[in-house]
Amino acid sequence: MALLEVSHLDVGFNTQLGSVQAVNDVSFQIKKGETLGLIGESGSGKSVIGMSLLRLLPMNACVKGEAFFEGKDLLTMKEKDLQKIRGERISFIPQNPTASLNPLLKNGLQVSEVFERKGHSKENSWKSALKVMERLMIRDPGLSAKKYPHQLSGGMRQRLVAGIALSLQPELVIADEPTKGLDSLTRGKTIEFFKHLEGDEDRAMLLITHDLDLAYEICDRLAVLYAGEIVEMGPAGELMDLPSHPYTRGLIKSLPKNGLIPLEGRSPSLLELPGGCYFGERCCHHKKECSCKHPQLKNSGAWQTRCHLN
């Protein structure tokens, strides 16, 4: 049975400009120990999906659909029950590690605080915190624990935030854009670090990213998002080597090392999505059918594609 089963997730935002459909009928499953990557560009709704699962979205969001975590629906359960799951069983590694750490608390305290809140004594908590930091490849945990967040490098800070998120050994981790805005050195270390995390058999991970290299290295399966819906989902290696949806193909080809061939145009505005295929206008295989009929997600084995051409 799947650990997390999301079906027909819709997320809309009521804004001054009208209703914005950020996520559209998204369904996916994550099995125990599996890593699913949600990849897409800005505005594709990938971060919104992650936030909506833990109900972290602002008040003007309207979430529909189901998200069953071990048989219980995360979207409709009581806030009190969700609080027990948040952090303990599902945890969230936020995008910006610097903003997520308290600059006035020593690193060790930020981790041990989590254990203290669980009723452990101060000493035990500190010891557990050191253990967590050691497991997460933080160099010289004893010394780092006594420093303040600003004294760590960007990569180390991210590990610390991950440490806080993983300290209670959750079954599912949602990581939001771990490599965004990092320079190549830190990014390389982050990829290495997530590989190390992924190696843990018991833990499932939902990795939200725009970084195709990271996704390729770490994920078991990938879901590609475009304009709020999944356009393609399949096993990571095959999907990256032989993408079948024109958008995925275009995205991979636009990388500098793959020839820097641009996808013309821009993603459609979520305020007024076009009729037919959302990618239609930018697609080089455009057919008549594409502009009048919205394609459905078609199954073929472990693979799903939303395209009229296949």
Partner: peptide, 8 residues
């Protein structure tokens, strides 16, 4: 301000 939404 209301949360901005990428390309929107």
């Amino acid at each position: 301000e209301v949360m901005g939404l990428g390309a929107a």
